[in-house]
Every structure is written in structure tokens, then in C-alpha cells.
Amino acid sequence: MIDLRKSDPQFKWEIAKREGGEGLLKCFGCSDCAASCPVRYFDERYNPRKIIRFTLLGMKDIVLKSPFLWFCAHCHACTERCPQGIRVAELINAIKNYAVEQGYCPDGYKMQLDLLMKMGRLYEVEDFDLKKRQRIGLPPIDKTIPEVAKILESTDILKVLKK
């Protein structure tokens, strides 16, 4: 049951002005995205058309609190087929970015950010790895890349995640 009295009429504009969100208002609900989606093929709880529809209706809480928003694999199968030329995967990503700003960020992403702050990579380069690389004839690599932390500190990403 959708209670439109809870609709936030500003929500769709908030999304439409973001990079990737520009196509939102062109959606006429044909469901080609849902039909092309490999995730939905295996799990009907994820449906890109529904997320876009709820966004257009201003059902902000439903969209942002839904765990299924994060099921998008960003595979772009939808983007390729949208008859309205909407970059659907980028649109879903814009909604994810907005959800993060509103305080809804899955823990896994926070952990990844911590790793990148610390090492500049997702995986630690251990002495074992460096020795193995040397043994099989691969060139050495940097253990950490501190410049990544500098970039992360220069944007709002850390502040946003503390919410």
C-alpha cells in the first residue's frame, strides 16, 4: 500500500539534478530495465522500474530505506536497452549516492572506504605477496598509496559517512 500523503514532491528534483539522474523525468515506466536486469531475473525483490517509479512519486523513505536499492550490480544491461535513453544504472547510482548523504550507507562500503584511506587499495600488499611476485618474475608494487587518502580528505565523502 502506497500512501501518497507521505510523498516528498522535492525528491525527484533532488535526484534529477545529480550527475546520472538527469534522465529520471523521461521514464514512462515501460519496464524494459526490469526485463533486462540479471539481478531481477534471479530475485524479484529487486526491480529498477519500481525504484524509479517510487522516486518519481516522491516516496523517499521507501526508496532510501530499501535494502534492495543496493542490489543493483551496475551491469548496465538496463542502460543499453532503455528506449528513453536514460542511463539507468547511473540513475540508480545517483540514488545510492543520495541515500549515503542521507545517512543510509551499507557497512560494507564504509569498510572499503577505511581500507582505501589506509592503503589506497582494497587488499593489503603483504611481504608474502611481494616475495611471491619476485619469485615468479613480476615487478615490485607499492605497498601503500597515501595519495588516495589525500583525495578522500579533499572531498566531502568522509564527512558524509560520519552521519
Binding site: E19, G20, W70, H74, N93, A94, K96, N97, V100, C105, Y109, Q112, L113, L116, G120, R121, L122, P139, D142, I145, E147, V148, I151, L152, S154, T155, D156, I157, V160, L161
Partner: peptide
């Protein structure tokens, strides 16, 4: 040729903040 100083591409950050991810990639 090796890219000395190359880091993560930035993709893992995209769902959190696309612009920051792009900056990491652009570096």
C-alpha cells in the same frame, strides 16, 4: 610499462560518492 604510484581505480567508491571515485580514477 609500469605505472608507479597507481592505486585502486576508484570503482568501489562509486556507489558511495561517484565524484570522489572519479577523482581517484583520474589521478
Amino acid at each position: 610499462v609500469e605505472m608507479s604510484g597507481a592505486s585502486c581505480c576508484g570503482f568501489p567508491l562509486k556507489a558511495v560518492d561517484a565524484e570522489t571515485a572519479l577523482l581517484v580514477a583520474a589521478r
